[in-house]
Write a protein that binds this DNA or RNA. Structure first.
Lengths: 220, 220
DNA sequence: GAGTTGATTTAGGCGGGCCTAATAATCAGA
DNA sequence: TCTGATTATTAGGCCCGCCTAAATCAACTC
């Protein structure tokens, strides 16, 4: 078993690596709310454990072993989120924070029981894919809502869970995963996007739209 | 919020205090699997936080504030045990170990949700009382099975959860809380106790019988 | 190609919680 | 009441994960 700090670092590096392939110390530092100096120290330690490769001044990357642990933690995290949402009715803007704490103390047995109770779900309440038991994770090919033009329709696939306020806002708009919407208008100069959700029309700010990912996009 | 170590110490002191009123450093040390020297250090720290009174060489006792925290942790612990057992089917000999880990990261919100989902239970799977939301705990006046004579009947009230093997053994015998039994025979010289459970007769070793607590005792 | 700037790493420290070894207090028995 | 055995406490250290301040490297500008 690894310490909570080790698990948190690996998860953060994994997440950051899907955006920028080279993961800088400062990015990790910001993500975890620690100083870069602390990250350097931990990077050395993780490199010593062969969970990470670290080229000084050049950034870090997960090794095979490191990625494996990251995926285990992410599986824990997303299963817990899903369980809390489905079984205990925790609203989707709060499941992330709860899961952050529980993911580090979840036994394999409990994970399996939650997984079974949920019927082996494949996505969490934010639409993020849950790694399978053998740690395969579905690639997500969704495009941000900001990439759609007026007249296109699509389905909400995933909403980033990095900010609880964002989730509350997006939830208030009714834009949960699996919701079909139509883009009515896109205001110029990075203005807001108007969409039809069911019978209602809703206006989504640009900033929020960046974090809403769409699939099944087609002209209408 | 307190550290996990602080919570563990307070819980251990609370538990030990119901058996021996004066709680010695070595008793705590044994319970927590640390050295007495470590306990002395922590005792000083807890005394500084006004959670405990510490008379050097004389033992420690919880203050009002310390007891309050202990009861909060115990409520968490027992609710989690109950939830895992009822909702996820975790066998009763394993719920303790799982709860030990989760109790330190459980939010009040989640606690309330679990409590509601269970219908506000009053005892955990081992028959131990769950402190109420305002931290009242029912006094248990049960007597150990070793205190019964042949011919008496009674109901299993509580089984100590300190040892998973014991629980597995007692479970195999069918002696779960709320089970009515009749004492058929008590072998002399601290020998085993034979009881009737439903239609079956079972023999319980003396050691195990010490940890099985009975209520509603009457002659039959 | 030298300087400036910003990111990164090193150096040194701190608190938490644990340890071992040495010392001190208590208790029980002669 | 003295003494030896038992139990507690002190003293000194270690590891983890974090910090600040100082030094170093990379990259870009001129």
């Amino acid at each position: 078993m690894h310490t909570q700090a080790v698990e948190d670092y690996l998860k953060a590096i994994f997440d950051l690596a899907r955006v920028d392939e080279v993961v800088t110390t400062s990015a990790i530092a910001e993500r975890l709310g620690v100083t870069s100096a602390s990250v350097t120290g931990m990077a050395k330690k993780l490199a010593g454990m062969n969970l990470v490769t670290h080229e000084p001044y050049r950034g870090v990357a997960l090794t095979q072993a490191g990625q494996r642990i990251a995926l285990e933690v992410i599986r824990h995290h997303r299963l817990i989120e899903t369980y809390l949402h489905e079984a205990l009715g925790v609203p989707w803007d709060r499941v992330h924070a709860e899961a952050e704490k529980i993911e580090h103390v979840l036994s394999e047995d409990l994970e399996a029981r939650m997984d079974a109770a949920l019927g082996h779900p494949t996505v969490d309440p934010h639409g993020s894919p849950i790694p399978t038991l053998d740690l395969e994770i579905a690639e997500t090919d969704a495009t941000p809502l900001t990439g759609l033009r007026a007249g296109q329709r699509g389905t909400v696939a995933e909403v980033s869970d990095h900010d609880a306020d964002l989730l509350r806002y997006v939830g208030d708009l009714g834009l949960y995963p699996r919701t079909p919407i139509v883009v009515v208008a896109v205001a110029p100069f990075d203005g807001p996007i108007t969409v039809r959700v069911g019978a209602a029309e809703r206006t989504v700010g640009r900033k929020a739209a960046q974090y809403i990912f769409m699939t099944d996009i087609e002209e209408s």
